[in-house]
């Protein structure tokens, strides 16, 4: 289908974006790579009165490492981050998860922050943000605030972003010594995940983050667990996520995947 009618604003400064959002509020949407938003428009699942195109703003295109954190601006495309030479060293989990985001033909234009704004519960970037405990930087004409990943995702395709706020960027912690693993089950590589899991070692044990099951990507920390204690913990977690049946998979299959992939990944990081 075709998108509904809207005004189109080509922003030349961040001020233009914030002003547009302040004036139009919930009737405005920020357009970055368009790989989620344009599909929503074409299907008429979104009907904004104003689109604010931010992709001509060079200041939002930065990837910067500052001490123990990497900041990624709102205009950084997924392909830009994949091509960043420090990615594997600074953000190994992102390096593992990013090739699973869409296809080469969509990563070339889609942005990291756009995927977070869309907040699909099956998407890889929200899962990665939650697994790493990153932060989202939100900016309006009046203020700037930093929201931890676990508070940012409020529900299926819902976030803590207020109508007048731009996702200016995100901050991801650099974990110096860690072992990270990522695994996903989807109908085809590049499709949205039926279940995606990331696991990492923590100072006290292990963390498992799961996407595609609950309404939001969810992380859980455990001390070192083995054998039946691990099985019990994973089983309880799988049920707590509240899986539902849909056209892609049954709730039971999703719980099975959480238990099986979870056990494999935790075994791998604790080796």
């Amino acid at each position: 289908m075709k998108p509904p009618a809207f005004d189109y604003l080509r922003a030349e400064t961040v001020g233009d974006v914030l002003e547009g959002l302040a004036q139009q509020g919930g009737d405005a949407r920020v357009l970055a790579g368009g790989q989620s938003l344009m599909a929503m428009l074409n299907m008429r699942l979104a009907k904004p009165k104003l689109l604010i195109d931010i992709m001509r703003l060079k200041e939002l295109r930065q990837i910067e490492r500052k001490g123990d954190a990497v900041t990624i601006g709102a205009g950084v495309r997924q392909a830009d981050l994949l091509a960043w030479p420090d990615l594997a060293a600074a953000l190994p989990l992102v390096a593992l998860a990013l090739p699973w985001v869409g296809h080469m033909q969509t990563r070339s234009r889609g942005t990291i922050c756009g995927s977070l704004a869309h907040a699909d519960p099956s998407a890889e970037m929200p899962l990665t943000l939650v697994a790493l405990g990153g932060e989202v930087v939100l900016r309006s004409a009046k203020r700037r605030r930093r929201v931890p990943a676990k508070d940012f995702f409020a529900g299926m395709m819902l976030t803590a972003r207020a109508d007048d706020e731009l996702i200016e960027g995100i901050s991801l912690p650099v974990v110096r010594e860690g072992r990270f693993v990522f695994r996903e089950v989807a109908r085809r590589h590049g499709d949205f995940a039926i279940v995606a899991c990331a696991a990492m070692k923590t100072p006290t044990g292990v963390r498992l983050a799961v996407g595609g099951v609950a309404d939001v990507p969810t992380a859980r920390d455990w001390p070192r667990l083995e054998g039946s204690a691990l099985d019990d913990a994973l089983n309880a977690f799988a049920y707590e996520l509240g899986a539902r049946d849909d056209v892609h998979a049954t709730a039971r299959y999703r719980r099975d995947l959480v238990r099986m992939i979870g056990r494999d990944l935790i075994g791998e990081v604790l080796q």
Binding site: Y8, L31, T106
Partner: peptide, 26 residues
């Protein structure tokens, strides 16, 4: 017309692009 099938793929400024997920104005 929602970016899945790939039939409309072109190259814009050296980037593979789904032309159905892109506005002419962009």
């Amino acid at each position: 017309e929602h970016g899945v099938c790939g039939a409309c793929t072109i190259v814009v400024d050296g980037m593979l692009t789904r032309s159905c997920l892109t506005l002419a104005a962009q």
